[in-house]
């Protein structure tokens, strides 16, 4: 092994070992636990498929799973549609303000989910400022904002849209905007140029953005708990319950494995849809301006 290779592995090893020990092994362990059984708050190594059978046949679990899936799909699409023009503007016209725009976009994300949800409750909830204003001025309050899935969807968009903007922006960083001028010289209108040039060259960024929004949204429990109200529970809430009041860890593990498996499937589907990643703009070196 050359000395460069040796140095490479010495530098990479601590992080790699750390991630294997504290991320991959625990994730693997819940696969094991998912085939066990829980008895009075303890896990019993009694191999069985009951947990999976229950999740995949009991309508309650399927219903929550479907609800979470459609929530994740809708929120990802909303984020995708709104993030594109925003990211495009920052990358194309941001100039020396690019960094400011990006920091402003990502700053709220760093505040943490719980405090952001607290802030949103003040806006959207039954005594939130929107509905209070409406009733103060004699209008009907908007029911959709009060403890509904719509409120949850707004909240999740609020939480995760920074990821989508960042992902698309990063792919646009390596995009040569002069290609658009070439397209226009050759007769393409702006939307057509976008569809023919910009989108295909940057769809990898969109794909990564979609996955980055889809996965946490699918697993969401806090936002739906505090914005969705008693009838707005999602798969994540049921999953969290297994580790809270009911203490059915084995069933919770199986729910976690199902969630993880769906994440992988979505990752795979999006990957396939993107196709040849080399032809699109995302590279690991992309973030020079970040």
């Amino acid at each position: 092994m050359s000395s460069n290779k040796r140095l490479f592995w010495w530098l990479v090893a601590p992080g790699a070992i750390f991630l294997i020990l504290f991320l991959i092994l625990p994730l693997a362990s819940i696969v094991v636990f998912s085939f066990w059984r829980t008895e009075s708050y303890t896990l019993i190594p009694d191999w069985n498929l009951d947990n999976y059978i229950r999740i995949l046949t009991d309508w309650t679990y399927i219903k929550f799973l479907l609800r979470s899936l459609s929530m994740a799909t809708i929120v990802s699409l909303i984020c995708l549609v709104f993030s594109w023009p925003i990211a495009f503007f920052i990358a194309r016209y941001g100039g020396k303000f690019k960094l400011i725009y990006l920091l402003l976009t990502s700053a709220p994300f760093l505040t943490g989910e719980i405090l952001r949800v607290t802030a949103l409750q003040q806006i959207l909830g039954p005594i939130g400022v929107i509905n209070m204003a409406l009733s103060t001025f004699g209008f009907e309050p908007i029911q959709a904002l009060m403890y509904t899935n719509t409120a949850t969807a707004i909240g999740l968009t609020y939480l995760w849209i920074p990821f989508m903007v960042l992902a698309i922006y990063l792919s646009l960083l390596n995009f040569d905007f002069e290609l658009l001028e070439v397209a226009k010289v050759n007769g393409a209108r702006p939307l057509r140029a976008f569809w023919e040039i910009t989108w295909p060259l940057n769809r990898a960024g969109s794909a990564i953005g979609v996955v980055l929004v889809f996965i946490p949204t699918l697993a969401s429990s806090i936002t739906s708990k505090f914005l969705g109200g008693p009838n707005g529970a999602l798969y994540g809430n049921i999953l969290a319950n297994q580790f809270g009041s009911t203490g059915t860890w084995a069933l919770g593990s199986a729910m976690g494995v199902v969630l993880f498996a769906i994440s992988l499937i979505v990752l795979y589907i999006v990957w396939k849809m993107v196709g040849d990643l080399k032809r699109s703009g995302v590279t690991i070196k992309g973030g020079a301006e970040l």
């Binding site: 991320l23 980055l212 697993a219």
Partner: peptide, 22 residues
């Protein structure tokens, strides 16, 4: 190194809880 970005936090939370404890 980028993999954790694609794993839901709740999974990281409960899996390390059980791994550590069990």
């Amino acid at each position: 190194f980028l993999m954790p970005l694609f794993i839901a936090h709740i999974l990281i939370g409960v899996s390390s809880l059980m791994f550590n404890k069990m």
